[in-house]
Structure formats: C-alpha cells, structure tokens
C-alpha cells in the first residue's frame, strides 16, 4: 500500500518534476521573505521575464525539432536596432518600421533554416556563426552607434513595452497571448505533431513521408518571429538600444527551455513547460536579488540549478544517479 503510494508519487515527480520543484521553490522563498509573493513583485518578475520568455517560445520549436538556436541573442540586438533606426527614418515611421523589421528578422531566420534544413549543416555551427555574423551586421547597420528615439513623447511606439491594458503590462499580454497561440500550434496542429516526429526520430519521420527539411526550416522562422516580437518589446520599452542589448540572452533562453524539461536531443518539451522554465529562471534571479546578493551571483546560481535540473532529468530516465561513461 505504502509502496504503491510511493510509486505514484515517484511517477508524478518524474512527469511533473519541474512543476513540483517550482512550487516548492516558491513556497520556500515566500516563507523566508514574504515580500517575494507580493503581487507587485510577482508582476514585476513576469514583466521582466517577458522578453526572455517570448524568445524561449520560439527556441522551444527549434529544440523540439532536434536543433539549437544560439543566434537569438544577437538577432534580438539586430531587430531592436533596426526597428529604432527605421522609426527615426522619415520614410518609414513606426507604422512601416515594425513590419520592415519583422521581414528582415525573418530573413535571418530563413538563412538559419535554409542552412540547417536544406543544406543539412550542423545547427550548433550554423547558429554560432550567425550569432557572430548578425552582430557584425547590426554594427554595420548602426555604425556602432546606440540608437535612440529623439522625440519620445510624439510616438505611439512605446505602447509595446510601456503600455498596459486592464492593469496588465502589454509585454505580459504579448507573452501570454503568443504562448497560447504557439502552444496550440505545437500541441494541436499537424505541423506541431511533425515537429515532435522530426525531433524524436528524423529517420522515422522521413519514412512516414514528412518533409523534414521544410519542418526544420519553419521552426527557425517561428524562432525568428519570436525574436522580432521580443526585439519590438525591448526597443519600445527603452526607446533606445545598444548594439549588444541581446548579448548572452541565447544561453539564458536555452536555460529556460531546458529547465522546462525539453530534451536537447529533440522530440520532447511543451510550450507550457517552457513558460514554467522561464518563470523559474525569473523568480530565482529575483529571489537572489531580494536576498541581497549582487546581481552577478545569479549567473553562478542559475547555472548550478540548470545543471542540477539536467542531471535529475537524465537520472530519472536512466533510473540511477551515478552513471559514468562506460
């Protein structure tokens, strides 16, 4: 009797481990410092996680498809710089700057997708190369200068980053809305099913008549679309940007996706889990700040937690903690 109860608890932990860990973590931190659960603090964390979160939604598609996207950080810088620059260009203005920026960012995603899907190059190499190449492209575009909106009071551009509706910040609404749409795309449509099949077993997908190259290509377009959205929020919130605004974000995004439980081998993960991963990462960093630690401590702690998460995940699958390379 007790044995079955233990087993079913073990089963729940194995399946929903990340959710359980999240709840325990929240309860623990709240007991330690009640301010942690204060609505202002909670909304603050969600709002500050929105940019990372929107990017993580797209990378989730790429990772479930069995690939990596390390170019999203510098792609974010690119989209923020481009939309700000075009905003200031009298020929564009905000109404044209936004679609133009989306189109250009999607082109970058298409390059990733083409090289990885149709030329079958390794995604780590391609997106690492693109990380550097896009950074160069951004600097070329901006001439190395920061971009700022000169007359910030005369544009409606700030609404995406600073606005709110019904008391909820717009970035949070965008994050939730996009998570819902992409969650349905991944979980409920034939395309989503094909992403899981391609990442889970590419050969079997080919043998089932699934156009693997096209599926992989589209996952990179989804990723680029999410980056463009995040870049819009970023640019709109600060009304200005440095060329390096997205630097290092690619690893944080990947961390959130892994924390959510998507396997880097592909074929598993969900949008919901990624959202949880994003929130965990956000709340950890927030908790450390509330604890009075310097912000750079978060880099260390974040990575310890991620490695623990990966270890526990793989240990559950293998059924043992200690398993040296044989």
């Amino acid at each position: 009797m007790a044995d079955t109860a233990m087993k079913s608890i073990g089963g729940v932990l194995a399946r929903q481990g990340i959710l359980v860990a999240f709840i325990l973590f929240m309860v623990g931190f709240t007991l330690w410092n009640p301010r942690f659960i204060d609505p202002d603090n909670v909304f603050g964390v969600i709002r500050s996680s929105a940019i990372l979160g929107v990017m993580a939604l797209g990378v989730t598609f790429v990772v479930i498809g069995g690939n990596l996207d390390l170019s999203v950080g510098s792609m974010l810088s690119f989209s923020a710089i481009v939309v700000l620059d075009l905003h200031e260009n009298p020929a564009f203005g905000p109404a044209l700057a936004i679609p133009a920026m989306f189109a250009l960012t999607l082109c970058l995603g298409a390059i990733n997708g083409f090289l990885i899907g149709y030329l079958r190059l390794n995604s780590l190499i391609v997106t690492l190369g693109m990380l550097s190449a896009i950074h160069g492209l951004t600097l070329t575009w901006s001439g190395g200068q920061n971009m700022d909106i000169a007359n910030q009071n005369e544009t409606w551009f700030g609404v995406f980053g600073r606005g709110s509706a019904l008391g909820v910040p717009i970035p949070v609404l965008i994050f939730i809305g996009l998570a819902a749409i992409l969650g349905i795309l991944l979980g409920k449509t034939p395309f989503g099913r094909k992403v899981y099949a391609v990442g889970g077993n590419g050969t079997a997908a080919t043998f089932s008549g699934i156009p693997r190259a096209r599926v992989v290509f589209i996952t990179y377009l989804v990723s680029a679309f999410c980056v463009a959205t995040a870049g819009l929020i970023q640019a709109s919130r600060t009304m200005g940007a440095q060329n390096t605004v997205g630097q290092g974000l690619e690893l944080e995004v990947l961390a959130a996706v892994i924390l959510g439980g998507a396997s880097l081998l592909g074929g598993s993960g969900t949008i919901f889990k990624t959202v949880i991963g994003v929130l965990i990462l956000g709340f950890i960093q927030n908790g450390l700040l509330l604890a009075g630690l310097e912000f750079y401590v978060q880099f260390v702690v974040t990575w310890i937690i991620i490695i623990l998460a990966v270890w526990l995940d793989i240990a559950t699958k293998r059924g043992k903690l200690w398993s040296p390379i044989a």
């Binding site: 043998f207 074929g267 598993s268």
Partner: peptide
Amino acid sequence: KEQGLVLGM
C-alpha cells in the same frame, strides 16, 4: 526502432 517508430511518442 530506427525507421518505423518515434519511440517517445
């Protein structure tokens, strides 16, 4: 296993 099935599905 290699060609017929997506084992995790």
